[in-house]
Computed example of a mutant assay.
Amino acid sequence: MSEYQTPRFSLPLLAVGQAHKELFHNEALLLLDFLIDSVVLDVSDDPASLSPAEGDYWLIGPVATAEWSGKSDEIAGWSNGGWHYIKPQESMKIIMSNNQGMAIYHDASWQFIVQVNGPAGGTIIDSEARSAIDSILDALRTARILPHIN
């Protein structure tokens, strides 16, 4: 970490007498814009295969190529100024768009969370317990603690 970067996400800090402060300030705001509501479109290894729009983010896959080479597991975001990268931190959570689920960065890798289904089947059915469990699962999905995959 440089003395002109934040410790967790390496956001650029301003320095006394620094030229073009607006560039560093804007870079920090772009990254914060993502960190406030961390939604990625998908996992990808090759930026050349994408048609990014401003504000689109991808999770860089394990076989990153071209501009993304050496940036596996980072998050790449597109703006008019090009690609911006976020290095994941322990316990960081992202939401995969289109109800694909969620992932948490744990022990130096992304752990994808699978959908938890409500109770089904069995020989003895307690409908009140099933209803309570389904309500809890719905609340966890609404709070984005559990993914809701269609």
Rank of each mutant, 00 (worst) to 15 (best):
T6M: 00
P7W: 02
F9E: 06
S10V: 00
S10F: 08
P12H: 08
L14H: 05
A15K: 14
V16K: 12
Q18M: 06
K21L: 12
N26P: 01
L29P: 03
L32H: 06
L35E: 01
D37Q: 12
V39M: 14
L41G: 12
L41P: 02
S44Y: 14
S44G: 04
D45F: 01
D45S: 08
D46S: 04
L50E: 06
S51R: 14
A53K: 08
A53T: 10
G55Q: 06
D56C: 08
Y57V: 07
L59R: 05
L59I: 03
L59H: 04
L59C: 03
G61D: 07
P62S: 09
T65I: 11
W68Q: 04
W68F: 10
S69Q: 14
G70Y: 00
G70V: 04
S72F: 04
S72R: 14
I75H: 01
A76G: 00
G77V: 00
S79T: 07
N80T: 07
G82T: 04
G82N: 01
H84M: 10
I86S: 01
K87Y: 08
P88D: 03
E90G: 03
S91A: 15
S91Y: 14
K93I: 05
K93M: 08
I95K: 07
N98H: 09
M102N: 07
I104L: 13
A108Y: 15
V114F: 09
N117P: 09
G118K: 00
P119F: 10
G122N: 03
T123H: 14
I124R: 13
I125Y: 04
D126L: 03
S127T: 11
E128N: 13
S135V: 00
D138Y: 11
L140A: 08
T142D: 10
P147M: 04
